[in-house]
Design a binder for these strands. Structure first.
Lengths: 126, 126
DNA sequence: CTTGACATTGACGTTGGCGTCAAGGCTTAC
DNA sequence: GTAAGCCTTGACGCCAACGTCAATGTCAAG
């Protein structure tokens, strides 16, 4: 299939696919006229990328998973590098959550100072 | 005082101060040679901006607080617009935390699939 | 033949909050 | 007078993941 069909089947733009290729995540053979040609395996690769991005992974984070699939593994997370990324991501998320909660507490205390009663009413008291 | 001293006292760069001015958050009168001149009130304005940014506010978020101070209020959060921003920010943070926790759960379940036992050991089992 | 739907590469725009030159003017000290 | 240290405006760079346009090529249908 060509890039337009892959884009439609994977739910991404053709621009995104060319970008992934530029970043070395996917590759395509070329037909005689220079058009990119993809197969079913590429649909899976792109799907893997998108599902990882959907949970906050960057393209770089997705790279080990893609390489894992291209290495013939049935699943992108069946490789040690992928597992390492999972663990790193968990740590990152936990750190982010802690930072956010700390900020939340600060904001809440400032709000309580600025507007006593705001914290327990729905509409607040401006 | 001139921009260098304000920068030092407020703990920001001169570039940042000029940027804040460009965004309409602070303003400076000019001395005869064209240099920006600031006073103590500006130190407070910049301090307010920085303390808000430290908890994740954008410059736009900080605007009502600055206007509040410039309106003569003793505190930047003593105005209804500021309180509204606080409340909006709390909601945003809560939404972010929820999204992060949802992602965390997804990542954790994938990790559990990829590497049973990883979730309960420190070093994991790759 | 021409229209239209596909494809190609290249390059600039987006978002926030500045960092980092560049090229020059003002002031003070030696 | 000149070096040092302040200041001015202007403009490009950065980061991610593309969007969007430009100019052009390919191919099947009418």
């Amino acid at each position: 299939m060509r890039i337009g069909e892959l884009a439609q089947r994977a739910g991404v733009s053709t621009r995104a696919l060319r970008y992934y290729e530029q970043q070395g995540l996917i590759e395509a053979r070329r037909s005689a006229n220079g058009y990119r040609e993809y197969d079913e395996a590429d649909v899976r690769l792109v799907a893997e990328i998108r599902s990882l991005m959907a949970v906050g992974f960057t393209l770089e984070d997705a790279r080990p998973f893609v390489e894992c699939l291209r290495a013939g593994k049935p699943s992108g997370n069946a490789c040690p590098d992928s597992v390492a990324v999972y663990r790193r991501k968990l740590a990152e998320i936990d750190a982010e959550v802690r930072a956010l909660l700390a900020r939340r507490a600060e904001v809440a205390s400032q709000l309580a100072l600025a507007c006593p009663g705001c914290m327990f009413s729905k509409g607040g008291e401006p």
